[in-house]
Amino acid sequence: MDLALIGRRSVAAGVFVILIGTALMVAVFFLGTFYFQGREGHGPLITGLLFLPIALTTMLGANLAGRLIATVGARRPGVAGLGVAAAGLLVPAVWSTTLATVLGVSVGALGIGAIFVVAAATALSQVDPSEAGVASGLLSTFHEFGASIGVATVSSVAAASLAGTDASGFQTAFLVAAVAALVGAVVAGVVIPRARQ
């Protein structure tokens, strides 16, 4: 592997976006599962059904981003996706109910779905066909790193709530995820290359 590949702006930007996107998505599913079952007392079936709108809005966000990238490039959908994710994840940080969590995380998932497409489009848009496999491998690797970082971070923040001793840990962990998405939006606005005219 040519290590210089990861130093290219488009590849580095795509890797960053997939890292933050996966960290947010895995954190949401991890926190949501513990919150719905451990705190709100829902069983596995109800919890699965509560995640259905989240899955649907993730797909919708990915579809919308794919259409937008063709016309406006990846930067605007990337920044907007992370901004929407931040706004959505702020909802369960402020209102700790099942309905607020489902609605907020569904909105957040709309943005997260968009940034997965942005990550792939950005990382692969300016590489030679002979390098596409390696660039794709980098995306997959940082996808896994993001999952590890997301779970490690939110589980540390929400530790008291996960142990069942305090509900505020869930809210704090969602707040940390919202702030991470907001910071990610700022960074994405700088690192994702502008659309070619």
Rank of each mutant, 00 (worst) to 15 (best):
V72E: 05
L124H: 03
D128L: 12
Q37F: 08
A4E: 11
A114M: 14
V91K: 12
F30I: 04
Y35A: 04
G169Q: 05
F29G: 00
S130L: 10
F142Y: 06
F16I: 05
S136T: 11
S140F: 09
I20H: 01
S106N: 12
G184D: 04
I18C: 02
F145M: 04
P77N: 10
V186C: 07
A85S: 15
F116L: 10
A93W: 10
V105I: 14
A167G: 14
A163I: 08
L19R: 00
A180E: 00
P92E: 11
V154G: 00
T122S: 13
A158W: 12
L60M: 15
V107I: 14
R196I: 09
V84Q: 03
A62Q: 03
G73H: 05
G73A: 05
R75W: 09
A27W: 00
A13G: 02
A93N: 09
A62W: 04
A181F: 01
L110C: 03
Y35K: 06
A178V: 08
A160Q: 13
F29Q: 00
A188V: 12
G61A: 13
R67E: 14
A178D: 07
V190W: 12
D128N: 12
I18V: 13
F34C: 05
D128P: 05
H143A: 06
E131V: 05
W95K: 15
